[in-house]
């Protein structure tokens, strides 16, 4: 860990501490009821007291987010490669794909719960649907913006027999040049995906579920356990931030040649 990273973490902790202090001061100064805005100390006590309950629900939500990321990104990657390989498919499907983005995915949540039940599947589906488009769009954009000089070079290198090797040459250029060249664009798509995946999972839980942090928050809200609601929210934030920075770290490790590194 570099001294720069240590400094960054130190600064973040100080900012966070200051935020907590202001929060606690507001609660003391205004005397606001604990079921409207509990102080951070009360939230911490609730977190400690309900650790097992929160951890159980958190594990389910984390699983939904990770599975959603895997499926959504996987399908996004496959569809981007297919759309770039088959120009006809792109001409027919891309406009439709863009139009579907006008549908608020949240509005589909009740239907998904109706079709796929109260369990894990509808939430994973929800997260996947939100992730799918940004990943597809970013990767497809990257695949279509390959430096033309690289493709010219590849063409001269594989042009031994244009008729017999046309597909082989195209596949080689895709595999060795266009896909690697598009990986930084895919990485940006995956970062967006990691940021929005928790939204999909939690919205899915709000609409209909029997477990997960979203469910726990609704449940706590209904029973005026606002301190528990805040504790669950805090854990959700920690999960989301952890997933984002883990993915970001992983992508930087895998793409050391990326221009912005």
């Amino acid at each position: 860990m570099t001294s720069n990273t240590v400094q960054n973490i130190g600064r973040s902790l100080i900012t966070f501490g200051g935020f907590l202090a202001i929060w606690q001061t507001i609660v003391w100064a205004t005397g606001v009821e604990f079921f409207i805005l509990p102080g951070p100390w009360l939230v911490a006590l609730s977190l400690a007291g309900n650790l097992e309950l929160i951890a159980g629900h958190a594990a389910i939500t984390a699983l939904e987010i990770v599975l959603g990321l895997l499926f959504g990104s996987g399908f996004g990657i496959i569809s981007a490669v297919s759309l770039s390989w088959f120009p006809n498919l792109r001409r027919w499907l891309l406009p439709v794909l863009v139009v579907t983005q006008a549908i608020p995915v949240f509005a589909l949540a009740p239907v998904l719960v109706l079709w796929m039940g109260y369990g894990l599947a509808s939430k994973v589906m929800m997260a996947s649907l939100i992730i799918f488009f940004p990943v597809t769009a970013a990767f497809l954009d990257g695949l279509r913006r390959t430096e033309p000089g690289w493709l010219d070079l590849a063409q001269t290198m594989t042009a031994a027999n244009p008729r017999a090797n046309f597909l082989a040459g195209r596949w080689a250029a895709l595999r060795h040049i266009r896909i690697p060249a598009a990986l930084p664009a895919l990485a940006s798509g995956l970062r967006v995906a990691a940021a929005v995946a928790p939204i999909g999972a939690v919205v899915g839980e709000w609409v209909g579920s029997s477990a997960g942090l979203g469910y726990l928050m609704l449940h706590a809200n209904g029973r005026m356990q606002i301190d528990l609601l805040f504790a669950a929210l805090f854990v959700l934030a920690v999960i989301a931030v952890t997933i984002y920075f883990t993915l970001d770290w992983l992508l930087r490790r895998l793409l050391p040649w990326q221009p912005d590194n």
């Binding site: 430096e147 000089g149 690289w150 010219d152 070079l153 001269t156 042009a159 031994a160 027999n161 244009p162 040049i177 690697p180 060249a181 990986l183 793409l255 040649w257 221009p259």
Partner: peptide, 17 residues
């Protein structure tokens, strides 16, 4: 001629990865 030429551009066209 195809398949019997080597091409070199003004830009090095090295793949950065």
């Amino acid at each position: 001629i195809a398949g019997r030429i080597a091409y070199m551009d003004q830009r090095d066209l090295l793949l950065p990865w």
